[in-house]
Amino acid sequence: MSYYSPQGGLPPQTALLTDRAVVKQAYTFIPKRVLRDIVTSNLPGFENTRSWIIARPIAGSATTFAQLIVEIAPGGGAETPEPESGVEGVVFVTAGALTVTLEGERHVLEAGGYAFLAPDAEWSLANEGDEPTSFHWIRKAYERVEGVPVPTSFVTRDQDVEPSAMPDTDGAWATTRFVDPDDLAHDMHVNIATFRPGGSIPFAETHVMEHGLYVLQGKAVYRLNDDWVECEAGDYMLLRAFCPQACYAGGPEPFRYLLYKDVNRQIRLT
């Protein structure tokens, strides 16, 4: 399997600045070309690390989550990565090897590695290899519900989870689900959607869940509200609640993206 990671650097002075980046009321589109060195941030408590913060709870961006692309050089990492109590997370590795010590157990996650980090779990990160490692880190304040147990941490791999074909698609559209969608303990899902070349979302999804959508592989034309936007591996889309969405996958390889959505909670009015 193939997973795109930002390359950093800066374009030459001769490059045209025209690009696909756009921020609209219904969505934000961040193309891979703008994820450059100059827009990275250091993270307190991390060594030899830089990050691209691509979503955060702020007007015009996300409302329920934050998403970072983190790159750790050899020898870097963090003993206490999560600075806030009550926050859950998902780490998904796209390049290199990342050592995650979770509740005292050491795991080495290579490309495709996935870790769910329960709220208030004890965990740390380290790059013990010889090459940089790159991963997505999705963070959300966990919403507790009386009578519903808090989910437990776990580690798995994209390669070990069989995608589930979406109904009536003959496998052209499938979803890799890392947790049971009916498990109310989980108030967010971070899945991988896969489309064969020519596969599509054949209707304009319009729903309350907001999405963070990072293209891991391939290319497609994506419907965002009333725009059709070309996207490719390395692009990021933030879709706010009720943004109509659909897509047609191009070729020659599968179109795959990492997908965040908030789920399984009643809407709070007071």
Rank of each mutant, 00 (worst) to 15 (best):
A241W: 02
P167W: 07
L17S: 15
F203A: 04
A15S: 14
V87E: 02
M237P: 02
Y4Q: 10
V229E: 04
G89V: 06
H107F: 15
T133A: 13
A233P: 02
A21C: 10
V70K: 07
G9S: 10
K32C: 05
A241K: 15
A172L: 12
E162I: 09
P197V: 04
I58T: 06
P181C: 11
M237T: 12
T40H: 04
E131T: 09
A115T: 14
V155G: 11
A55N: 04
A118C: 13
T94I: 07
D160Y: 06
R177F: 07
E110S: 15
Y236G: 06
D37H: 02
F242E: 12
W123R: 01
C243G: 00
P244E: 01
G104Q: 08
D160P: 00
P119S: 02
Y248F: 13
E88G: 15
I38Q: 07
I138E: 02
I30W: 04
E162Q: 08
G198A: 07
R36P: 00
A246V: 09
G212S: 12
T169S: 12
G89T: 06
G113H: 08
L98I: 00
S134M: 07
Q67K: 09
Y142H: 15
N42A: 12
P167K: 11
Q13D: 10
R157T: 14
S51C: 01
V150W: 00
P11V: 07
Y222A: 13
S41Q: 06
L17N: 14
T14Y: 00
A246L: 03
A26D: 12
L102R: 10
G198I: 08
I138G: 00
L98N: 06
P12T: 14
L43N: 02
D226Q: 10
W137R: 09
